[in-house]
């Protein structure tokens, strides 16, 4: 009986995860298609594009990879930039880790691999707001696998699409456009706005530097500027003592 109950709980959590993740696929599907198309445009083989989605499994960072690779950056610069962009996942890892401390190493490896922005966003809400349940890691398995399969399928379809589009159309400009759609919602947030302004200006002022070092310098300056703006902003609002946003 006990076994039966925990089986049901596992399936329930898993299904709940998929249901929570489904609405986010609206944003993921075009993104995966675009990645597949751009991968082919950047001169990678279909196999390389597909494998990148499996090995890295990180939306924007994979497009950054393409952008740097196509511009002739060294593999060291490409992988360190991808690594830096994905550093935010350490925050997610820290936040979910207390809930998964009892799991086996195998589970921890699988759940870590699946810990993307979108899966984290839905699963952290379940972990923090719903009753504790020893099988609740199945929720992350549900959100994670839902996202994973969508990402792989859309990458594959994008590769097919990319092979059919003539390179002369110049789709490379789709990269900054794609990134812009990610950045635009942050314009309304003051510290992020400062980070955007500083990072963009520094990237232009230092564009002549070798090995695309301007990107790293601009990114660090932008991060610092955003952080400083956040502190000054908090000090200004200290008397209001509201909780604000949770990024």
């Amino acid at each position: 009986m006990a076994n039966n109950h925990s089986d049901i709980r596992r399936i329930d959590e898993f299904i709940l995860g998929i249901r929570h993740e489904a609405p986010l696929l609206v944003g993921v599907i075009p993104f995966g298609l675009i990645f597949g198309v751009l991968g082919i445009e950047a001169g990678l083989t279909p196999f390389q594009v597909m494998t990148m989605s499996v090995i890295i499994f990180g939306g924007a960072s994979q497009i950054i990879f393409l952008e740097l690779f196509a511009s002739g950056a060294s593999p060291y610069l490409v992988s360190s930039t991808v690594g830096v962009v994905n550093l935010r996942h350490a925050l997610y890892s820290a936040r979910v880790s207390p809930y998964f401390s009892q799991l086996t190493l195998g589970w921890k490896v699988i759940l870590s691999y699946l810990l993307t922005d979108e899966a984290y966003a839905m699963t952290i809400r379940r972990l923090e707001n719903r009753p504790h349940n020893p099988e609740m890691h199945y929720h992350l398995l549900g959100t994670g696998l839902c996202l994973w399969s969508s990402w792989q399928i859309t990458t594959f379809l994008g590769i097919m699409l990319g092979a059919a589009i003539p390179p002369s159309l110049g789709l490379g400009f789709a990269i900054p456009l794609t990134f812009m759609t990610i950045v635009v919602p942050y314009l309304a947030n003051w510290p992020h706005f400062v980070a955007i302004l500083v990072s963009g200006s520094i990237a232009i002022m230092t564009y002549h530097m070798p090995w695309k070092l301007n990107l790293i310098i601009a990114a660090i300056a932008g991060m610092l500027a955003g952080y400083l703006a956040e502190i000054l902003h908090k000090n200004n609002d200290a008397d209001k003592s509201t909780t604000g946003y949770s990024q």
């Binding site: 924007a60 950054i64 952008e67 930039t81 830096v84 962009v85 550093l87 935010r88 350490a90 925050l91 820290a94 400009f173 990269i175 900054p176 990134f179 812009m180 990610i182 950045v183 942050y186 510290p191 992020h192 980070a195 955007i196 500083v198 990072s199 963009g200 200006s201 520094i202 990237a203 232009i204 564009y207 695309k212 301007n214 990107l215 601009a218 990114a219 660090i220 300056a221 932008g222 991060m223 610092l224 955003g226 952080y227 956040e230 990024q247």
Partner: peptide, 29 residues
Amino acid sequence: RPLPPTVRAMLGYVTTAVLTAIIASEVLV
């Protein structure tokens, strides 16, 4: 050990900062 609060706060700006740097150098250069 847990991430220092300063590092946590800065990591929140990584994505916007990197993406903006790439956008700026792609569009204007």
